[in-house]
Amino acid sequence: MSLAGAQEIIGDGMPTPLAGPGDVTRGRAIIIDRQKGFCLLCHSGPFPEQRFMGNLAPDLAGAGSRYNAAQLRLRIAHSARLAPDTIMPSYFATEGLTRVARPYVGKPILDGQQIEDVVAFLLTLKEAP
């Protein structure tokens, strides 16, 4: 699976945005939505109104200080390209998957705009936990 053009990987980042400018409010809503991004099943983070956040993955607090936009974009869109054995889903992938449920075949978990929204929100998380 090669990622050409807009999804090109340079170093450990994906510098080209997948859609228009990300919206911080939409990004936060996607992260806390257990059906859309379902991020909090694995990650904890600075979301005081959220309960029962998982502990399978790093805390999202400070993500905006640890990584730049390109790095965040790659880690969300195609995490498997960085770490093949990761449990982090590749949110923009539609190929290289096995036995996808019928309603989701050919569709990425999040579309390009949703990923840009999530990246935009994560960039605002400057304080480490």
Partner: peptide, 17 residues
Amino acid sequence: ERRGQMNLSCAQCHDDN
């Protein structure tokens, strides 16, 4: 075997985690 849109195997959760 990793499967599904989330690309996870039984082992990744129930053995590793």
